[in-house]
Amino acid sequence: MFKNHKLTNQQDVQFARLQAWVMSLVCSLLVLFAAAAATRIPHYLTVGDYGRLLSVILFSVLTIVGLVANIHTHITLKESNK
């Protein structure tokens, strides 16, 4: 009734590469949003809205960490092809 569909190692790597490229798109969009939000930092400093300032900085740091992790994933998948 149920068929066992196991992927081969090469199919696993190809699927992981597809996931990495989709995550690259997501991370790139998030970095773009973080850059847009960072343009408001001078305004938050002058108004004294430190909650939003901290939120923008935290969001920027998290997006950069996500992008670096995604680049590391691409490098690891490229090395696994050798």
Rank of each mutant, 00 (worst) to 15 (best):
residue 1 M to N: 14
residue 1 M to I: 09
residue 2 F to S: 14
residue 2 F to A: 14
residue 2 F to Q: 14
residue 3 K to P: 03
residue 4 N to Y: 07
residue 5 H to K: 14
residue 6 K to P: 09
residue 7 L to V: 00
residue 7 L to N: 02
residue 7 L to H: 07
residue 8 T to S: 04
residue 8 T to R: 02
residue 8 T to G: 03
residue 8 T to N: 06
residue 8 T to A: 00
residue 9 N to R: 11
residue 9 N to L: 11
residue 10 Q to D: 15
residue 11 Q to F: 04
residue 12 D to I: 12
residue 12 D to S: 12
residue 12 D to L: 13
residue 13 V to G: 00
residue 14 Q to M: 12
residue 14 Q to N: 11
residue 14 Q to H: 11
residue 15 F to P: 01
residue 15 F to V: 12
residue 16 A to N: 05
residue 16 A to H: 04
residue 17 R to D: 07
residue 17 R to I: 10
residue 17 R to E: 13
residue 17 R to N: 15
residue 18 L to A: 11
residue 18 L to F: 12
residue 18 L to Y: 10
residue 19 Q to P: 06
residue 20 A to F: 03
residue 20 A to M: 02
residue 20 A to H: 03
residue 21 W to Q: 15
residue 21 W to G: 09
residue 21 W to I: 10
residue 22 V to T: 07
residue 22 V to R: 07
residue 22 V to G: 05
residue 22 V to H: 06
residue 23 M to T: 14
residue 24 S to F: 08
residue 24 S to C: 13
residue 25 L to G: 13
residue 25 L to Y: 10
residue 25 L to H: 09
residue 25 L to Q: 10
residue 26 V to A: 07
residue 27 C to V: 14
residue 28 S to F: 05
residue 29 L to A: 07
residue 29 L to I: 05
residue 30 L to I: 08
residue 31 V to A: 04
residue 33 F to N: 09
residue 33 F to S: 06
residue 33 F to L: 11
residue 34 A to T: 00
residue 35 A to S: 15
residue 35 A to L: 15
residue 35 A to G: 15
residue 37 A to G: 09
residue 38 A to K: 10
residue 39 T to Q: 08
residue 39 T to Y: 08
residue 39 T to G: 08
residue 39 T to N: 06
residue 40 R to T: 03
residue 40 R to D: 05
residue 40 R to V: 06
residue 41 I to T: 03
residue 41 I to H: 01
residue 42 P to V: 00
residue 42 P to C: 00
residue 43 H to N: 08
residue 44 Y to I: 02
residue 44 Y to N: 04
residue 45 L to R: 02
residue 45 L to C: 05
residue 45 L to P: 01
residue 47 V to A: 07
residue 47 V to N: 00
residue 47 V to K: 03
residue 47 V to S: 01
residue 47 V to C: 01
residue 48 G to Y: 00
residue 49 D to G: 04
residue 50 Y to R: 11
residue 50 Y to V: 13
residue 50 Y to W: 11
residue 52 R to S: 13
residue 52 R to P: 05
residue 53 L to Q: 02
residue 53 L to G: 02
residue 54 L to C: 13
residue 54 L to T: 15
residue 55 S to A: 14
residue 55 S to L: 10
residue 55 S to C: 07
residue 56 V to D: 01
residue 56 V to T: 11
residue 57 I to R: 00
residue 58 L to S: 09
residue 58 L to V: 12
residue 58 L to M: 09
residue 59 F to K: 02
residue 59 F to R: 01
residue 61 V to W: 05
residue 61 V to M: 04
residue 62 L to A: 09
residue 63 T to I: 06
residue 63 T to D: 09
residue 64 I to Q: 04
residue 64 I to G: 03
residue 65 V to T: 14
residue 65 V to E: 04
residue 65 V to N: 04
residue 66 G to L: 09
residue 66 G to A: 05
residue 66 G to S: 05
residue 67 L to R: 09
residue 67 L to E: 13
residue 68 V to K: 04
residue 69 A to F: 08
residue 69 A to D: 06
residue 70 N to V: 01
residue 70 N to G: 03
residue 72 H to S: 14
residue 73 T to F: 00
residue 73 T to W: 04
residue 73 T to L: 07
residue 75 I to W: 09
residue 75 I to V: 15
residue 76 T to N: 12
residue 77 L to R: 01
residue 77 L to A: 03
residue 77 L to N: 03
residue 78 K to R: 14
residue 78 K to H: 12
residue 78 K to D: 10
residue 78 K to C: 08
residue 78 K to G: 06
residue 79 E to L: 14
residue 79 E to C: 04
residue 80 S to T: 05
residue 81 N to D: 12
residue 81 N to M: 11
residue 82 K to R: 13
